[in-house]
Amino acid sequence: MAHIRTQIRHAVVELIKGSSLAGSRVEPSRARPLRRGEQTSAFVYTPAEQSEDLDTEGTQGRTIRVKIDTVTKGEEDARQDDLDDFAVFIEKAFANDPLLGGLASASQYRSTDFAANTEGEKTFQVMSITYEIAVLTRNSDPETTL
């Protein structure tokens, strides 16, 4: 088995595959630039985690931050609409499976941020969506949810 963060990243990747914008180009990764000719892609990573002991038997409540970066190239106004459509797809996917197939005890949307770089031949845009995932584990077993 793998650490619960790894399992959550992979579950989110599968959850958000299939959109008209990113299709199957969704990867569990911290960052990877788009190369020339590459299409819009999404990257799922876990930049932070907090935990607290809930009892003396070793039960831990973990809050794992999941960030989904969607990277695209193209003119800003058309791409903004495409990114907003993908945000709808992601939010509906989480609403339909907030427990990520039983890995989580809850998930909560936190924020969406946008960035753009116009220095290259095409405008490069990133939409970052952040969720917080609540998970219960034992402090002696960070691979298995309770």
Rank of each mutant, 00 (worst) to 15 (best):
D53H: 05
D53K: 12
L54E: 13
L54F: 06
T59V: 12
T59N: 08
T59C: 07
G61I: 00
G61A: 12
T63C: 06
R65M: 09
R65G: 05
R65F: 04
K67R: 11
T72W: 01
K73L: 10
D77T: 13
A78H: 04
Q80C: 01
Q80L: 12
L83A: 04
L83H: 05
D84M: 11
D84N: 11
D85H: 02
A87L: 09
F89N: 06
I90V: 15
E91R: 15
F94G: 00
F94W: 01
P98V: 04
P98G: 00
L100C: 09
G102I: 12
G102W: 13
R110C: 08
S111N: 15
T112Q: 14
T112R: 14
D113P: 01
D113K: 15
F114Q: 09
A116D: 06
T118Y: 07
E119D: 14
G120A: 15
G120L: 08
E121A: 12
K122Y: 05
T123Y: 01
F124E: 14
V126C: 07
M127V: 00
M127S: 13
S128N: 03
T130K: 07
Y131I: 07
Y131A: 12
E132Y: 00
A134P: 00
A134K: 10
V135I: 11
L136M: 08
L136S: 06
T137A: 01
T137I: 14
T137Q: 02
N139Q: 10
P142G: 06
P142W: 03
